[in-house]
């Protein structure tokens, strides 16, 4: 059966902003949990994308409203404000698009985006997304395990890491134009994973969300989603995936090494220098939630880090 968004977004769990604030006041008065009336889930706009729901990867919480997930984005290629990507997103041209997969592998290859879409059957997975800024969403992504793509190029035994590179083109990404006071990040945006993290079945090469093609502001046409790590690890608008034997330099780590480590696993016990990571605000909810170790995926990924000091390897 094909899941529709009216199915996965049950009435009660959505709070409009107004209800949220009204709820806040009611809550302050009576001190109980927020409940609000039903608001209809909007049908997603844009080109539909078929995918088979994978029930094994489906968090129980209701997905975030589509409007919220597409208007509240950190995507510095478009600008430093969260509304910039939705406002300026149309400058990005997701077609034609190529993804170069190379480095320490037997069969390096440059994939056309249409080929990328066909490497493995598209599945829909509902993951929670935890931003390093202590807010979170629940998003139905469409894609397939990154491992499927990596296997096609046959990584060599020496490959230990994977580096992702986002498109660098100030014409398409206005945020990459040097500003009056210099740039924000060191472009192109690069991110990285250990090879075993990249090959983990949870790591999703993503081409869509909410039943449709990935909107530009969410990293079109292809990105990764690594649900047990803070959101910035999940590189967007990828043009290159490189297998390497050395730990890749990552964009935010270069910008602020003491705040953003290479691993950046969601960890409620390791604070960001400027705030606690112990709680998070789920977009659409009033009260903070407690943050779960590895964003709730501990039983699947904790074994990747046995024996590691996660305070040091933040």
């Amino acid at each position: 059966m094909r899941l529709r968004y009216s199915d996965v977004t049950p009435e009660k769990l959505y709070l409009s902003r107004r209800e949220l604030m009204a709820g806040a006041i009611a809550l302050a008065a009576i001190g109980c949990d927020v409940g609000a009336e039903a608001t209809a889930a909007p049908m997603p706009a844009g080109a539909p994308l078929k995918a088979t729901p994978n029930a094994a990867y489906r968090v129980q919480d209701a997905p975030t409203k589509f409007d919220a997930a597409t208007t509240y984005n950190n995507f510095y290629e478009f600008g430093v404000n969260k509304e910039d990507p939705a406002r300026l997103g149309q400058t990005l041209k997701p077609r034609p698009w190529h993804v170069q997969v190379d480095g320490l592998c037997a069969k390096p290859k440059t994939f056309d985006i249409e080929e990328v879409l066909k490497v493995a059957p598209l599945e829909e997975r509902i993951y929670s997304l935890r931003c390093v800024e202590a807010w979170s969403m629940v998003i139905p992504w469409i894609g397939y395990p990154l491992a499927a793509l990596l296997k096609q190029v046959e990584p060599r035994p020496g490959a230990k890491y994977v580096e992702f590179t986002t498109l660098k083109d100030p014409e398409q990404f206005p945020g990459q134009k040097p500003g009056f006071f210099g740039g924000t990040l060191d472009w192109p945006y690069t991110e990285g994973l250990r090879l075993d993290e990249a090959m983990h079945p949870l790591t999703l090469l993503t081409v869509g969300m909410y039943g449709q093609v990935l909107p530009n502001q969410n990293g079109a046409p292809v990105r990764v989603v690594i649900p047990w790590k803070y959101g910035f690890k999940s590189a967007k608008s990828i043009v290159r995936i490189r297998l390497t034997d050395t730990e890749p330099k990552t964009a935010w780590n270069k910008a602020a090494p003491q705040e953003y480590g290479f691993y950046s696993n969601v960890n409620p016990k390791v604070d960001h220098p400027r705030w606690s990571q112990g709680t998070e605000r789920r977009i659409g909810e009033f009260r903070r939630r407690t943050t779960l170790m590895f964003n709730g995926y501990a039983d699947q990924v904790a074994s990747l880090y046995t024996g590691m000091d996660l305070k040091k390897n933040y």
């Binding site: 902003r17 107004r18 409203k65 509240y72």
Partner: peptide, 13 residues
Amino acid sequence: GFATDDLTVNPIE
């Protein structure tokens, strides 16, 4: 903004 439900998707922030 409060009255018209227009305080962004993260109103508290």
